[in-house]
């Protein structure tokens, strides 16, 4: 790890300005991913701007029935918050399915969104990686691909975004509140992260120095019965092979009036399954319809030789999650609980 300067930020705009002015500066929040990367040499900032003391650590109700979660709210606090648990249990489930108890106690909402891929080649300085060193090549393209993308990848990068929380936020139409040196703006979480294209070194649409100060969740009645399902090799403390966050609203005739589906572990970003959503609208909400929705999304899938098994997992994640949501909406089986989370 290289020596670095440390600044404790006074306010959000000032922090944004400090980082914006120095291409080698970085924000420090929970540090659970950044510090790991610094130890590995993947990232070598010369300046850290510590934002953990900024007043962004509240969960507040919004006037229209939504919720605002400060960027510094720890993952464990967000998961345990009564308003999150009752209005957006899917977010609580997603948070609790991620990392370990110790990490969730340290990791923040903003930091979770901006964590970087765990692609083994990205983290291994001895191998080429376009994301770490643009133009050096993608080692995963013909390498170890178990955790890699099946949607939206490019010949330059097949990495996935590792967050569970972001998948739930994408399904919930959440917005990131972003502060730069001059102003504040809002970006939908589903459009915050990029597909790799020819510039995999850029994870998000944020400019250097943009600071996420909060995440805002709109009021969404169907969110109360939304669910998160994470499929992984290890029963805890493992990144998703595939995960799904799903919400559904049924019309009086029992057909699907509205739906939200987002997938994790499958793309460079939390993957909003819009083709599956479209296929569901007006459908009868049977297992057959859920399978058809999954197939609609899978038409876009481009698996790698080492992760073709993810296609049936995507199918299973969508159909089982929608099935559980439908049971809950119809008053059967799993209701709006707080999720099994980490066992």
């Amino acid at each position: 790890m290289n020596p670095f300067d440390y600044h404790r930020a006074e306010d959000a705009a000032g922090a944004a300005a400090l980082v914006a002015d120095n291409p080698a500066a970085a924000f420090l929040a929970g540090g659970t991913n950044l510090v790991d990367r610094m130890k590995l040499g993947v990232t070598a900032p010369d300046t850290l701007v510590d934002i953990t003391h900024l007043p962004m650590d509240e969960v507040e109700e919004l006037p229209e029935g939504g919720l605002r979660i400060g960027a510094n709210v720890r993952n464990s606090e967000a998961a345990a918050h009564p308003l999150v648990r009752t209005r957006y249990p899917v977010l609580s489930q997603a948070l609790l399915s991620g990392a370990s108890g110790q990490l969730r106690n340290a990791a923040t909402t903003g930091g979770n969104l901006l964590q970087r891929t765990r692609c083994v080649y990205f983290q291994d300085l001895s191998t080429p990686c376009n994301k770490r060193e643009p133009g050096s090549g993608c080692s995963a393209l013909e390498g170890y691909q178990r955790y890699h993308a099946v949607f939206g990848a490019s010949p330059d990068c097949v990495a996935t975004h590792p967050s569970d929380m972001a998948v739930a936020l994408a399904a919930l139409d959440a917005q990131a509140v972003v502060q730069d040196a001059a102003a504040e703006r809002r970006i939908p979480v589903s459009r915050l992260h990029r597909l790799p294209g020819e510039a995999p070194e850029r994870d998000t649409v944020l400019a250097h120095g943009d600071l996420i100060t909060a995440v805002e969740l709109p009021a969404m009645p169907m969110a109360a019965r939304a669910r998160y399902r994470k499929i992984r090799d290890r029963a805890s403390f493992a990144f998703a092979l595939v995960s799904a966050a799903a919400a559904m609203e049924l019309a009086e005739d029992g057909t699907v009036a509205d739906a939200r589906i987002a997938l994790g572990g499958v793309a460079h970003k939390p993957w909003r399954a819009r083709l599956a959503e479209e296929a569901l609208i007006g459908a009868a909400a049977t297992g057959h319809d859920f399978a058809a929705a999954a197939e609609a999304e899978l038409a876009e899938a481009r698996p790698l030789p080492g992760n073709t098994f993810k296609l049936p997992l995507v199918r299973a994640a969508i159909t089982t999650t929608l099935g559980e949501v439908a049971d809950g909406v119809r008053g059967r089986g799993a209701g709006p609980d707080q999720g099994e989370g980490e066992r």
């Binding site: 983290q123 080692s139 390498g143 170890y144 403390f237 493992a238």
Partner: peptide, 22 residues
């Protein structure tokens, strides 16, 4: 990874060891 010759999943995030929940 045969191209390089070394173990590429060389950390506990990728080389899984049974955790409590297992």
């Amino acid at each position: 990874d045969g191209r390089f010759g070394h173990v590429v999943n060389a950390d506990f995030a990728e080389y899984h060891i049974a955790a409590n929940a297992d």
